[in-house]
Amino acid sequence: MEHELLKVKNDASSLIIAAEDEKELNEIKLDFLGRNGKLTQLLKRMKDLPEERKPEIGRLANEIISTVEDLLATRGEELRGEKKEKIKRAVEDITIPGVKPSLGHLHPMSQVLFDVIDVFKGLGFQAADGPEIETDRYNFEILNFPKDHPARDTQQTLFLDTRKSKATSGETILRTHTSTMQGRIMEKIKPPFRVIVPGKVFRYEQTDASHGFEFWQFEGYAVDKNITFTNLMGTLDYFVRKFFGEETKIKFTSHNFPFTEPSLEGYVSCVVCKGKGCSFCKQSGWVEVLGGGMIHPNVLRNVGIDPAEWQGFAFGTGLSRLVILKYQMDDLRLLTNPDLRILEQF
């Protein structure tokens, strides 16, 4: 009995010292001192001992119990201390770089696209999307660009190969502007409506720093009983201030587009020099960004809307150009360059 008690004590103390955490320590405690613990079981056998041995063994047993309890308590405190120490160590040098999960980058065009949609959503405009392979009718005819009209020169066109199909040569094209979606939507719906259309457009144009044969545009229009020219100006002013920053100024000049009358162009104060004049804005302090006007009565008639009852504005801008301006990039071709050294900046 005495021998067994000592063995249990030794087992317990070596285990306690080796314990790695409080959970383990608790298990050890249960294992030895619990209701079915090894020590408890041994003590239950005390009653079988001869009377004269009882006091001596009893004392030894009590001593062993208190030693084990002491050991448990001491180790417990040690472990709690170590844990604190560990936690402390982890935040001791907070300048250590964090471990980042790998994260990619959204293209600046997407970021600008979502920004633009967001601004116009706030004004009640719904976004639409339509085909890039278009007909002459939606790209030109409906929009008051008659065949053989010099205005078509402003939008040099890429024609699709019509062999092997029923399409007439010269009639199927890649859209030159997102304004195609004026006809497509307006002929299917009655006013009032407010629409924006972002999308890719194509031109027969040689590529350089500010031109491309493929670029992104975005179109907006609104038709109601009393939408006015000043509303167009108000909408564009709101947009550029939301998009480029509250301090941005806008000014308008007269222009001509076949599908609007009266028409305007919008210039914003240079985003680089804030209007003081720099190389980015060719010293003028202003950069041209928008074109628009009141939808031409012929266009409304062409889509079956009575221009005596309804009126509205339309405008368009180069989404690619907005990206270039917003991030002060110097070349349109950067937007189609997949170099991660560019993409990672956004």
Binding site: L123, R194, I227, F229, T230, N231, M233, Y238, F252, T253
Partner: peptide, 9 residues
């Protein structure tokens, strides 16, 4: 044009 007020619809 720049004498016009700018008014949201």
């Amino acid at each position: 044009y720049n004498k016009f007020p700018k008014i949201i619809p």
